[in-house]
Design a binder for these strands. Structure first.
Ligand SMILES: [Mn+2]
Ligand SMILES: [Mn+2]
Ligand SMILES: [Zn+2]
Ligand SMILES: [Zn+2]
Lengths: 138, 138
DNA sequence: TAATTTGTGCAACCGGGTTGCAAACTTATT
DNA sequence: AATAAGTTTGCAACCCGGTTGCACAAATTA
Protein backbone atom coordinates (compact mmCIF):
# COMPACT_ATOMS: atom_id res chain seq x y z
CA UNK A 1 0.00 0.00 0.00
CA UNK A 2 1.25 3.44 -0.98
CA UNK A 3 1.81 6.16 1.59
CA UNK A 4 -0.65 9.06 1.61
CA UNK A 5 2.23 11.46 0.95
CA UNK A 6 3.06 9.70 -2.28
CA UNK A 7 -0.59 9.55 -3.22
CA UNK A 8 -0.91 13.30 -2.79
CA UNK A 9 2.11 13.94 -4.96
CA UNK A 10 0.81 11.56 -7.59
CA UNK A 11 -2.57 13.26 -7.67
CA UNK A 12 -0.96 16.65 -8.17
CA UNK A 13 1.51 15.25 -10.71
CA UNK A 14 4.71 15.92 -8.81
CA UNK A 15 7.49 13.38 -8.99
CA UNK A 16 8.03 11.97 -5.49
CA UNK A 17 11.72 12.58 -4.88
CA UNK A 18 13.17 11.90 -1.44
CA UNK A 19 13.38 15.62 -0.70
CA UNK A 20 9.79 16.25 -1.70
CA UNK A 21 8.48 13.35 0.35
CA UNK A 22 10.38 14.65 3.33
CA UNK A 23 9.13 18.21 2.94
CA UNK A 24 5.53 17.25 2.35
CA UNK A 25 5.66 14.90 5.32
CA UNK A 26 6.80 17.75 7.57
CA UNK A 27 4.23 20.14 6.18
CA UNK A 28 1.47 17.58 6.67
CA UNK A 29 2.32 17.16 10.34
CA UNK A 30 2.09 20.87 11.18
CA UNK A 31 -0.86 22.28 13.05
CA UNK A 32 -0.10 25.68 11.59
CA UNK A 33 1.37 27.14 8.44
CA UNK A 34 5.16 27.44 8.32
CA UNK A 35 7.61 29.46 6.29
CA UNK A 36 10.87 28.63 4.59
CA UNK A 37 13.10 29.55 7.55
CA UNK A 38 11.00 27.46 9.93
CA UNK A 39 11.03 24.56 7.51
CA UNK A 40 14.78 24.88 7.22
CA UNK A 41 15.14 24.52 10.97
CA UNK A 42 13.34 21.20 10.96
CA UNK A 43 16.29 19.71 9.14
CA UNK A 44 19.64 19.00 10.77
CA UNK A 45 21.26 20.43 7.70
CA UNK A 46 19.50 21.26 4.51
CA UNK A 47 19.97 23.58 1.61
CA UNK A 48 17.70 26.59 1.63
CA UNK A 49 17.55 26.73 -2.14
CA UNK A 50 16.35 23.18 -2.50
CA UNK A 51 13.65 23.71 0.11
CA UNK A 52 12.74 26.97 -1.58
CA UNK A 53 12.35 25.32 -4.94
CA UNK A 54 10.48 22.39 -3.46
CA UNK A 55 7.97 24.80 -1.94
CA UNK A 56 7.72 26.62 -5.24
CA UNK A 57 7.03 23.43 -7.13
CA UNK A 58 4.41 22.47 -4.55
CA UNK A 59 2.68 25.82 -4.87
CA UNK A 60 2.74 25.64 -8.68
CA UNK A 61 1.24 22.18 -8.62
CA UNK A 62 -1.19 23.13 -5.86
CA UNK A 63 0.11 20.60 -3.38
CA UNK A 64 0.32 23.47 -0.92
CA UNK A 65 -0.89 27.07 -0.85
CA UNK A 66 1.02 30.13 0.23
CA UNK A 67 -0.15 32.64 2.79
CA UNK A 68 1.05 36.20 3.10
CA UNK A 69 0.28 36.89 6.73
CA UNK A 70 2.00 40.25 6.82
CA UNK A 71 4.98 39.12 8.89
CA UNK A 72 7.34 39.31 5.94
CA UNK A 73 7.75 35.55 5.77
CA UNK A 74 5.45 33.67 3.43
CA UNK A 75 3.80 30.70 5.10
CA UNK A 76 2.69 27.46 3.52
CA UNK A 77 0.04 24.86 4.29
CA UNK A 78 -1.08 21.74 2.48
CA UNK A 79 -4.07 21.87 0.19
CA UNK A 80 -6.77 19.26 0.05
CA UNK A 81 -6.45 16.65 -2.68
CA UNK A 82 -9.24 18.28 -4.63
CA UNK A 83 -8.13 21.91 -4.21
CA UNK A 84 -7.48 24.01 -7.29
CA UNK A 85 -6.92 27.26 -5.40
CA UNK A 86 -9.69 29.08 -7.23
CA UNK A 87 -11.02 32.26 -5.57
CA UNK A 88 -14.19 30.41 -4.63
CA UNK A 89 -12.21 27.70 -2.84
CA UNK A 90 -10.11 30.05 -0.74
CA UNK A 91 -10.41 30.32 3.01
CA UNK A 92 -9.56 32.93 5.59
CA UNK A 93 -6.25 32.79 7.48
CA UNK A 94 -5.50 33.90 10.99
CA UNK A 95 -2.32 35.27 12.46
CA UNK A 96 -2.02 35.33 16.24
CA UNK A 97 0.02 38.27 17.47
CA UNK A 98 0.85 36.43 20.71
CA UNK A 99 1.94 32.93 19.72
CA UNK A 100 2.83 34.21 16.26
CA UNK A 101 1.28 31.22 14.55
CA UNK A 102 -0.54 31.41 11.26
CA UNK A 103 -3.45 29.03 10.86
CA UNK A 104 -5.85 28.07 8.10
CA UNK A 105 -9.46 28.75 8.99
CA UNK A 106 -10.45 26.10 6.51
CA UNK A 107 -14.08 26.27 7.51
CA UNK A 108 -14.36 29.98 6.81
CA UNK A 109 -14.57 30.72 3.09
CA UNK A 110 -13.56 34.16 1.91
CA UNK A 111 -16.81 36.07 1.46
CA UNK A 112 -17.83 37.23 -1.98
CA UNK A 113 -16.86 40.78 -2.80
CA UNK A 114 -18.76 42.98 -5.19
CA UNK A 115 -15.93 44.66 -7.05
CA UNK A 116 -16.38 47.94 -8.94
CA UNK A 117 -17.32 47.75 -12.61
CA UNK A 118 -14.75 46.07 -14.90
CA UNK A 119 -12.53 44.75 -12.15
CA UNK A 120 -11.52 41.09 -12.44
CA UNK A 121 -10.49 39.03 -9.42
CA UNK A 122 -7.94 36.31 -9.90
CA UNK A 123 -6.98 35.73 -6.31
CA UNK A 124 -7.88 36.93 -2.84
CA UNK A 125 -5.85 37.07 0.33
CA UNK A 126 -7.66 37.62 3.60
CA UNK A 127 -5.78 37.51 6.87
CA UNK A 128 -7.28 38.28 10.24
CA UNK A 129 -4.77 39.37 12.85
CA UNK A 130 -5.48 39.07 16.55
CA UNK A 131 -5.54 36.49 19.34
CA UNK A 132 -6.14 32.82 18.69
CA UNK A 133 -8.35 30.69 20.93
CA UNK A 134 -5.40 29.38 22.93
CA UNK A 135 -3.90 32.83 23.56
CA UNK A 136 -7.15 34.70 24.21
CA UNK A 137 -7.67 33.49 27.77
CA UNK A 138 -7.71 35.47 31.00
CA UNK B 1 -5.63 80.00 6.29
CA UNK B 2 -3.77 76.78 7.15
CA UNK B 3 -2.98 74.22 4.49
CA UNK B 4 -4.98 70.99 4.58
CA UNK B 5 -1.76 69.04 5.00
CA UNK B 6 -0.99 70.88 8.21
CA UNK B 7 -4.53 70.49 9.38
CA UNK B 8 -4.35 66.71 8.88
CA UNK B 9 -1.14 66.51 10.85
CA UNK B 10 -2.60 68.66 13.59
CA UNK B 11 -5.68 66.47 13.85
CA UNK B 12 -3.58 63.35 14.17
CA UNK B 13 -1.19 65.07 16.57
CA UNK B 14 1.95 64.89 14.50
CA UNK B 15 4.36 67.77 14.54
CA UNK B 16 4.47 69.29 11.05
CA UNK B 17 8.15 69.22 10.19
CA UNK B 18 9.26 70.13 6.68
CA UNK B 19 9.93 66.50 5.86
CA UNK B 20 6.55 65.35 7.08
CA UNK B 21 4.71 68.04 5.16
CA UNK B 22 6.58 67.04 2.03
CA UNK B 23 5.88 63.34 2.44
CA UNK B 24 2.24 63.78 3.27
CA UNK B 25 1.85 66.14 0.35
CA UNK B 26 3.23 63.51 -2.02
CA UNK B 27 1.11 60.75 -0.52
CA UNK B 28 -2.00 62.90 -0.79
CA UNK B 29 -1.47 63.46 -4.48
CA UNK B 30 -1.22 59.76 -5.40
CA UNK B 31 -4.06 57.96 -7.11
CA UNK B 32 -2.73 54.68 -5.76
CA UNK B 33 -0.87 53.42 -2.72
CA UNK B 34 2.92 53.67 -2.85
CA UNK B 35 5.76 52.01 -0.99
CA UNK B 36 8.98 53.28 0.51
CA UNK B 37 11.12 52.69 -2.62
CA UNK B 38 8.59 54.48 -4.82
CA UNK B 39 8.37 57.34 -2.34
CA UNK B 40 12.14 57.56 -2.29
CA UNK B 41 12.21 57.99 -6.06
CA UNK B 42 9.97 61.03 -5.88
CA UNK B 43 12.79 62.91 -4.22
CA UNK B 44 15.89 64.08 -6.05
CA UNK B 45 17.87 62.88 -3.10
CA UNK B 46 16.44 61.78 0.18
CA UNK B 47 17.45 59.54 3.00
CA UNK B 48 15.62 56.24 3.07
CA UNK B 49 15.73 56.06 6.85
CA UNK B 50 14.06 59.39 7.34
CA UNK B 51 11.31 58.51 4.90
CA UNK B 52 10.97 55.13 6.57
CA UNK B 53 10.58 56.70 9.99
CA UNK B 54 8.22 59.33 8.67
CA UNK B 55 5.98 56.61 7.28
CA UNK B 56 6.20 54.74 10.55
CA UNK B 57 5.18 57.79 12.52
CA UNK B 58 2.30 58.39 10.14
CA UNK B 59 1.08 54.82 10.51
CA UNK B 60 1.37 54.98 14.29
CA UNK B 61 -0.60 58.20 14.40
CA UNK B 62 -3.06 56.93 11.77
CA UNK B 63 -2.28 59.65 9.26
CA UNK B 64 -1.82 56.84 6.74
CA UNK B 65 -2.53 53.12 6.69
CA UNK B 66 -0.27 50.34 5.44
CA UNK B 67 -1.26 47.72 2.93
CA UNK B 68 0.42 44.38 2.49
CA UNK B 69 -0.47 43.61 -1.10
CA UNK B 70 1.71 40.53 -1.33
CA UNK B 71 4.37 42.08 -3.56
CA UNK B 72 6.92 42.22 -0.78
CA UNK B 73 6.79 45.99 -0.59
CA UNK B 74 4.41 47.51 1.92
CA UNK B 75 2.23 50.21 0.41
CA UNK B 76 0.79 53.27 2.10
CA UNK B 77 -2.23 55.47 1.55
CA UNK B 78 -3.68 58.39 3.48
CA UNK B 79 -6.46 57.84 5.96
CA UNK B 80 -9.49 60.05 6.30
CA UNK B 81 -9.36 62.65 9.05
CA UNK B 82 -11.76 60.62 11.13
CA UNK B 83 -10.20 57.21 10.58
CA UNK B 84 -9.07 55.18 13.58
CA UNK B 85 -8.18 52.06 11.59
CA UNK B 86 -10.57 49.87 13.55
CA UNK B 87 -11.53 46.56 11.93
CA UNK B 88 -14.98 47.95 11.21
CA UNK B 89 -13.53 50.93 9.35
CA UNK B 90 -11.24 48.92 7.10
CA UNK B 91 -11.74 48.61 3.37
CA UNK B 92 -10.68 46.15 0.71
CA UNK B 93 -7.55 46.75 -1.37
CA UNK B 94 -6.87 45.78 -4.95
CA UNK B 95 -3.61 44.88 -6.61
CA UNK B 96 -3.54 44.88 -10.41
CA UNK B 97 -1.18 42.25 -11.81
CA UNK B 98 -0.82 44.19 -15.05
CA UNK B 99 -0.20 47.84 -14.09
CA UNK B 100 1.08 46.68 -10.70
CA UNK B 101 -0.77 49.41 -8.87
CA UNK B 102 -2.34 48.96 -5.49
CA UNK B 103 -5.52 50.90 -4.86
CA UNK B 104 -7.85 51.50 -1.95
CA UNK B 105 -11.38 50.31 -2.64
CA UNK B 106 -12.58 52.78 -0.06
CA UNK B 107 -16.21 52.10 -0.85
CA UNK B 108 -15.92 48.40 -0.19
CA UNK B 109 -15.78 47.64 3.52
CA UNK B 110 -14.23 44.36 4.60
CA UNK B 111 -17.14 42.03 5.25
CA UNK B 112 -17.76 40.76 8.74
CA UNK B 113 -16.24 37.38 9.47
CA UNK B 114 -17.65 34.95 11.99
CA UNK B 115 -14.48 33.74 13.67
CA UNK B 116 -14.34 30.45 15.58
CA UNK B 117 -15.08 30.53 19.31
CA UNK B 118 -12.64 32.60 21.41
CA UNK B 119 -10.79 34.20 18.55
CA UNK B 120 -10.32 37.96 18.75
CA UNK B 121 -9.78 40.10 15.67
CA UNK B 122 -7.60 43.16 16.01
CA UNK B 123 -6.96 43.83 12.36
CA UNK B 124 -7.90 42.49 8.95
CA UNK B 125 -6.05 42.62 5.66
CA UNK B 126 -8.00 41.80 2.53
CA UNK B 127 -6.37 42.16 -0.85
CA UNK B 128 -7.96 41.19 -4.13
CA UNK B 129 -5.47 40.47 -6.90
CA UNK B 130 -6.45 40.67 -10.56
CA UNK B 131 -7.05 43.22 -13.29
CA UNK B 132 -8.13 46.77 -12.58
CA UNK B 133 -10.75 48.57 -14.64
CA UNK B 134 -8.15 50.29 -16.81
CA UNK B 135 -6.23 47.10 -17.56
CA UNK B 136 -9.22 44.78 -18.02
CA UNK B 137 -10.09 45.91 -21.54
CA UNK B 138 -9.96 43.97 -24.83
C1' DT C 1 25.31 3.22 -23.88
C1' DA C 2 24.79 8.00 -24.92
C1' DA C 3 21.97 12.09 -24.99
C1' DT C 4 18.65 14.75 -22.65
C1' DT C 5 15.95 16.31 -19.02
C1' DT C 6 15.15 17.04 -14.21
C1' DG C 7 16.62 17.76 -9.47
C1' DT C 8 20.03 19.18 -5.95
C1' DG C 9 23.80 21.90 -3.57
C1' DC C 10 26.74 25.76 -3.07
C1' DA C 11 27.76 30.52 -3.38
C1' DA C 12 26.69 34.84 -4.30
C1' DC C 13 23.47 38.37 -4.83
C1' DC C 14 19.14 41.44 -4.31
C1' DG C 15 16.17 44.52 -2.08
C1' DG C 16 13.07 46.04 1.42
C1' DG C 17 13.32 46.85 5.91
C1' DT C 18 15.68 48.08 10.31
C1' DT C 19 19.08 49.68 13.87
C1' DG C 20 22.95 52.43 16.12
C1' DC C 21 24.89 56.51 16.55
C1' DA C 22 26.06 61.25 16.08
C1' DA C 23 24.78 65.75 14.35
C1' DA C 24 21.12 69.23 13.76
C1' DC C 25 17.23 71.17 15.28
C1' DT C 26 13.43 72.24 18.52
C1' DT C 27 11.41 73.00 23.00
C1' DA C 28 11.57 73.67 27.93
C1' DT C 29 14.07 75.44 32.08
C1' DT C 30 16.99 78.46 34.59
C1' DA D 1 20.29 84.66 26.74
C1' DA D 2 22.38 80.43 28.17
C1' DT D 3 21.75 75.80 29.21
C1' DA D 4 19.70 71.45 29.27
C1' DA D 5 16.57 68.02 27.55
C1' DG D 6 14.02 66.09 24.03
C1' DT D 7 13.08 65.31 19.12
C1' DT D 8 14.16 64.78 14.28
C1' DT D 9 17.29 63.86 10.64
C1' DG D 10 21.25 61.73 7.98
C1' DC D 11 24.71 58.32 7.26
C1' DA D 12 26.43 53.78 7.47
C1' DA D 13 26.03 49.39 8.40
C1' DC D 14 23.38 45.45 9.04
C1' DC D 15 19.52 41.77 8.85
C1' DC D 16 17.05 38.41 6.58
C1' DG D 17 13.84 36.29 3.42
C1' DG D 18 13.90 35.51 -1.07
C1' DT D 19 16.14 34.60 -5.59
C1' DT D 20 19.52 33.50 -9.34
C1' DG D 21 23.63 31.32 -11.77
C1' DC D 22 26.11 27.58 -12.32
C1' DA D 23 27.98 23.05 -11.86
C1' DC D 24 27.22 18.44 -10.53
C1' DA D 25 24.17 14.40 -9.68
C1' DA D 26 20.28 11.64 -10.69
C1' DA D 27 16.69 10.09 -13.46
C1' DT D 28 14.56 9.61 -17.88
C1' DT D 29 14.56 8.87 -22.76
C1' DA D 30 16.46 7.54 -27.21
MN1 LIG E 1 -4.86 27.89 4.28
MN1 LIG F 1 -6.67 51.82 1.79
ZN1 LIG G 1 -2.01 32.41 19.63
ZN1 LIG H 1 -4.18 47.80 -13.77
Amino acid sequence: MKKSIDKSLEIKQVKPTAMRQLVLDILSKQDHAIGLPELEMQFAQADRTTLYRTLKTFVDKKVIHSIDDGTGTIKYAVCTDTCHCNPSELHVHFYCIKCEKTTCLTDIPIPDIQLPENYFAENINMVVKGLCNRCNKG
